[in-house]
């Protein structure tokens, strides 16, 4: 309940209580569905990251997720996590877990990391390794999950549902339950951050999508009170993201740079960026295709996906439309 209240207060007052910090775009996996566009960039140094953490804390950020790329490829990752914990963030780590051994798991526990979130694509080594493009990755990740469990680290499994693994949802959920992990399934594959859709080949098709979405019918609650909240989001309002080179973004899914922390302070960017002002100014009435849609109450449109899929912040998101239509049918049929 408090999180909901905090979300409302901070959204109204434009306080970035939630943030994601990408430490690197380098990765040791070659996942077919990855949205990250790898470019040659100069990553923030340890000192620069610490300065960003200071600035985020001062701006009111409480919930901070570290992500990548694969953040454990950075040699200073534990130093940075320790600093974030010291700054009293709720620290979540998003990792592919390939590099996590028993010692690393114990370190994360000792640091009091809130949660480690990792992708588990399949319980079949062949499928998993095919998704990651790295032979032996399944064995390593399963070993990491065992180590995290043994160390007492909270784990969340996140599984994008794709053509190769959607049939495994039940067994993945059972695996998570048995091990005390939370689990999140998502049938949406985001296009690459440059708009290319070459990474979405594994996206589940219409008939299957219906089957997948319907599995979750019972767990939904919808509100007609704030339909704009269904199709707009908190990106750039109480949610901020920072890229490995220090670009401030409204969200990692909304790759529009609001400014760079190598040139300006977070506060200055957060308060004055025209990009952020534009995002914050988005109103339901401006979304011509969505405003009158009969499925709006079932929709989780992501402005970033709309931009990447259709090139417009004001347009519809095809993925969201497909899911909303199935949900509508599910709830009304």
């Amino acid at each position: 309940m408090r999180e909901k209240e905090l979300a409302e207060i901070t959204e109204a007052d434009l306080i970035p209580a939630w943030a994601m910090l990408e430490l690197t775009h380098r990765c040791n996996f070659k996942c077919s569905h990855c949205y990250v566009v790898k470019e040659k960039i100069k990553e923030l140094s340890s000192a620069e990251v610490k300065d960003v953490l200071d600035q985020l804390a001062a701006a009111g950020c409480l919930f901070l997720a570290f992500t990548g790329g694969e953040l454990f490829l950075r040699k200073d990752v534990f130093e940075l996590l320790a600093y974030a914990v010291k700054k009293r963030f709720v620290v979540t780590v998003l990792t592919n877990a390939f590099l996590l051994d028993a010692a690393a798991a114990r370190k994360l526990k000792a640091l009091r990391i809130h949660e480690v979130s990792t992708s588990l694509y399949s319980l079949k080594a062949g499928v998993f390794d095919k998704v990651t493009g790295v032979a032996g990755s399944f064995t390593k990740v399963m070993g990491a999950l065992r180590a995290l469990k043994k160390a007492g680290v909270r784990v969340r499994i996140k599984t994008p549902l794709m053509t190769v693994n959607y049939a495994e949802e039940k067994s993945l959920a059972a695996f998570a339950k048995k091990n005390g992990f939370s689990v999140l399934f998502d049938p949406v594959l985001s296009p690459k951050n440059d708009g290319s859709v070459k990474n979405t080949g594994q996206k589940i098709k219409a008939g299957v999508l219906e089957e997948v979405v319907q599995r979750h019918c019972g767990g939904w609650s919808f509100s007609d009170k704030y339909p704009e909240r269904n199709v707009l989001c908190s990106a750039g309002k109480n949610f901020a993201a920072v890229s490995p080179s220090g670009e401030v973004l409204p969200c990692l899914q909304l790759p529009l740079s609001a400014g760079t922390l190598r040139e300006k302070s977070f506060n200055e960017i957060w308060k004055n960026s025209p990009v952020l002002k534009k995002i914050r100014g988005l109103k339901l009435s401006a979304l011509k295709e969505c405003a009158g849609c009969k499925n709006i109450r079932y929709c989780n449109r992501c402005p970033g996906l709309a931009l990447l899929e259709n090139g417009s912040l004001y347009g519809k998101s095809v993925s969201a439309c497909e899911i909303a239509a199935v949900r509508s049918g599910c709830c009304n049929g």
Binding site: D13, I15, A17, A57, G60, V85, K86, R88, V90
Partner: peptide
Amino acid sequence: IKKGVAAREIKGRYYVV
């Protein structure tokens, strides 16, 4: 305040985990 306790002052009030 113990190590690892997350907290932030937001609009004059502390939110503590």
